[in-house]
Design a protein around this nucleic acid. Structure first.
Lengths: 186, 186
DNA sequence: CCAAGTATGAAACTCAGTGTTAGAGTAGAC
DNA sequence: GTCTACTCTAACACTGAGTTTCATACTTGG
């Protein structure tokens, strides 16, 4: 049901624009009452962004699976392959979704908020990686945040290029801009 | 007038809590009409967050003033001294403000949005630093974003410590976690 | 004095989001 | 079978944000 409602919302938002569509419209289109719609999704935005819910958990889980010997930055980069895979598997709708989110201020804001919520979990995952029980430090938190920024910046460019640029390559480029091998110039 | 309204709002939010206070309450407390209040600030949140408006511009300006020979990461770190100075000059109210923002989901979200808006300007400043006309690349954007994360993480810890930890030191620590000298471990 | 712009206020409106209540369907206990 | 408890849904009322429209001062330059 949740999935169906989410799909209806996505379609309607694409067709009419996020602001034009009211919660009532969504409910009608999905054949449920306004109340029901709002019980499934706390807000209009959530109906779209629920599609990203899995990403945060997946990346954190992927980080935990990286070998303990690996440095944090590499572990984060590799963990993001999970997300990249998602975009590669269905570039069409991924592009439409990303575009919708970036072009709608309300959605963009909510997604920032959502990703902000991933940060502690990601830092925690870094700390607990491979059984080691490191404390969550400033350094780990900053790296988690920076990795998410890399993803976002790469996605921005990927979307701006209509999906023509290679997401993998953009992400590598973004990570290289901050890594230990970067000279932080140019 | 704007400054006065903002002050009234800040005080009332601190005293009663952001959600409890309606725009009508703010207007009454400030002795203006609801309409007037909402014409000065597009939203309730903006009445508080307008205090941060200068920061974005200041950091970008500070980046432009850094020597061209300096690497990006150092330039960003030094540019953030402008913001740090703001917190050092009035730690009391800065702490109260930061706490209010972090503890109020609506405010936190809006501030993320606001800082997100700084990113392009900051990347642009990096690119144009000291007259050089470099294009805005993925690398520059990522560094700008990461620097803002460093500020946020440092502020989080500073706030959590009731202002007892040294903000300057926390920021250095955050920057060191990503810099060229970092081994990205621990 | 006048005219044009500007700051304010009043009121009506749309819509998001919350809470409450009540009915319909379902599953298990006995 | 039926009573009970639980869940899903609809209907409805309510608060409050934010927008728009219109009217009324209050400047300020000519």
């Amino acid at each position: 049901m949740r999935a169906r409602l989410s799909q209806v919302a996505f379609d309607l938002f694409l067709r009419e624009g996020f602001e034009k569509v009211t919660v009532g419209d969504l409910a009608t289109a999905a054949g449920v009452s306004r109340s029901t719609f709002l019980r499934y999704f706390g807000s209009k935005e959530e109906a779209v962004l629920t599609a990203f819910d899995a990403h945060g958990r997946q990346v954190a889980a992927a980080v935990r699976d990286r070998p303990a010997a690996e440095d944090d930055w590499t572990a984060l980069r590799r963990a993001l392959d999970a997300v990249v895979g998602h975009y590669r598997s269905d570039p069409e709708s991924a592009l439409a979704m990303t575009r919708l989110v970036r072009e709608t201020p309300a959605l963009c804001a909510r997604q920032l908020e959502k990703q902000h919520g991933w940060r502690p979990a990601l830092a925690q995952a870094l700390a607990e990686r491979a059984g080691s029980a490191r404390p969550v430090t400033v350094a780990l938190t900053v790296r988690a945040a920076a990795a998410l920024d890399c993803l976002n910046v790469a996605l921005d460019h990927w979307t701006a290029s209509d999906g023509r640029l290679d997401l993998e390559g953009l992400l590598d480029e973004a990570f290289a801009a901050l890594g230990p091998d970067s000279r932080m110039v140019g």
